[in-house]
Design a protein around this nucleic acid. Structure first.
Lengths: 208, 208
DNA sequence: GGCGGCTTGTGAAATCATTCACAAGTTATC
DNA sequence: GATAACTTGTGAATGATTTCACAAGCCGCC
């Protein structure tokens, strides 16, 4: 398979979201044009995105909502659950650990780590905060798939190095810093500072 | 000024972060190559990004850390504070409202809204959760610059329409949904579901 | 079964973003 | 003040992504 652009994968995720909504509204069939309007793109873009993976539609008719939903789940690797650990039990880490949306989409948070003795052992729901010191051992034993990083920025790189050498290969980083990882590790960033600064830029340079 | 690509603005934000760190370490001068290594890009990219806005370096020497820092702050519109409101006092909204990083970067959270009577009136620090019903009046009175959306996905579009007609022109959306806004409104998204699905895709399609 | 109205899938073209490559400027050294 | 060692700024080349445009296929109706 030819290398797929990041932007394409992001849009697939959006299409899937809209398809799920369409299912709830009882729609059976949907056109690339409707998918595009909702995803803020063009119908040609939708068709091109899908064409990298096969041909899913019927000319003259559009796409079957349940079939395309299933195909996108397959493509995105969502026909299985993923085991997620959260590293850093601060404000954001805690909020994420309790966030229902993850579970609903097949991302099961199975552990939360911190190094602060005051936090270790506290519980929410079924989750107990574990000691950061045990993380390598746990990773080797439990093989989580994805680690979400919510440590302070200063500690993030050190923590990432530990996670990577313990075997983690997929990371979602919330610290406002660009992390260095080896090429076989996939890293995604959620950087609120960057987004806010993007808004600041837009507001400042609005009128040309 | 020629239209600036989103990717460029995002990198400027990264460079600024690294410059701040360099200041703390007492560096006076920095080359495009060092900036690039840290930002995960190339030195040519750094120079090109900066060239859209002027020429800030000295050939043979590199860039003055304090001067480039100041120039980037200027370009990004960060020489002033921005007034931010948070709409939705759930897990994420609450975590964001208490997050120190915003304030440090000049984004002052001045109000939090929810429509749940059980939440209205609760306080953290200097902030009291206000009634969603008052948001239009408050916007007209207090002129916040940026609204952060942390409502459930189902309500997000309705809330956005209200915010836009009350005059908001910059939005940061955390709901996992693509919102529709008029062209004079800037919308940025933080979509954790999308990032996780991107990781799922990468893990699934790792070996070709 | 033929016709009209739709909508897909996809090469080709156009646009946009990144990388190359090098002249020109700066500093340090002798 | 000439030379060597660096590093910027930037057109031109390359590469990637998006948009165009249209043939081909499907459905419903007469």
């Amino acid at each position: 398979m030819r290398r797929i652009a990041d932007s394409t994968v992001r849009r697939l995720s959006l299409y899937l979201r809209f398809l799920e909504e369409s299912t709830n509204r009882g729609l059976v069939t949907i056109s690339s044009d409707e998918l595009a309007r909702r995803g803020g793109t063009t119908s040609a873009q939708v068709r091109k995105d899908l064409s990298f993976f096969g041909s899913f539609g019927k000319r003259g008719l559009g796409y079957s909502v349940p079939e395309l939903t299933e195909s996108l789940r397959e493509i995105l690797g969502l026909r299985r659950d993923w085991q997620v650990i959260i590293v850093g039990a601060g404000k954001i880490g805690t909020a994420l650990a309790q966030y229902r949306g993850f579970r609903q989409r097949g991302f099961r948070v199975t552990a939360v780590y911190d190094r602060d003795p005051k936090k270790i052992g506290t519980r929410w729901d079924a989750l107990t905060v574990r000691d950061m010191a045990e993380i390598e051992r746990d990773i080797q034993k439990e093989h989580p798939d994805i680690a979400v990083l919510t440590t302070p920025a200063e500690e993030a790189q050190v923590v990432v190095d530990r996670l990577v050498s313990a075997g983690m290969r997929a990371l979602l980083n919330f610290a406002p810093i660009q992390l260095q990882v080896p090429p076989d590790v996939t890293l995604k960033n959620v950087n609120m500072a960057m987004e806010l600064e993007g808004l600041s830029f837009a507001l400042t340079n609005r009128d040309r």
